[in-house]
Amino acid sequence: MKDTNEMEIIFDSRSENEGFARVAVASFMTQLNPTVEEVADVKTAVSEAVTNAVIHGYENEVKKIHIRCRIRENIFYVEVKDTGRGIENVEEAMRPMFTTRPEQERSGMGFAFMEAFMDQVEVESCPGKGTTVKMRRAVGKGREIWTTQSL
C-alpha cells in the first residue's frame, strides 16, 4: 500500500532510554513534515507512556519495552508495549491526578498528557501480562498541501 511506513524498536526499560525512545519516534515522524508543535506533542506523549512502562509496568526492573510506529497517509500511530504487571483498573488509572505512588511525587498527569497531546489514546491491559498504549495523531491537519501546486 502506498503512503504507509512502519518501524519497531525494542529497548531496555531503563530510565536513560526515555530520551532515546521519544527522539527515535520523533525522527521517524519527520517524514510526515510535521510542525515543531506536532513533534513536541508526540514526544511528550511517548515520554509519558515509556515512563509509565518503566515505573509502573516493570516497577524499575530491567525488561523490554516495544514501540511500534505506523504511518498511514497523514495519520501517525504509535504503540508502547510492556509485558509487566498490567493495570487492574484502566479507567481509574487514566483519571487525572490519580497516582498509585504519591510518595514518589508522581504528578498523576501521565495519561492526561497523552490524551491532551494525541487525538486518540487507547489502553489495553491485562494484570500480570502487561500493558499496551495505542495512540494516534493526525499530522498536518488543515495545512495546505502547497507542494502539489505548480510553482
Binding site: T44, S47, E48, T51
Partner: peptide, 9 residues
C-alpha cells in the same frame, strides 16, 4: 522539553 515528571518536581 518537559513531561509530567517535571510537574511532579
Amino acid at each position: 522539553f518537559m513531561d509530567s515528571s517535571g510537574i511532579g518536581v
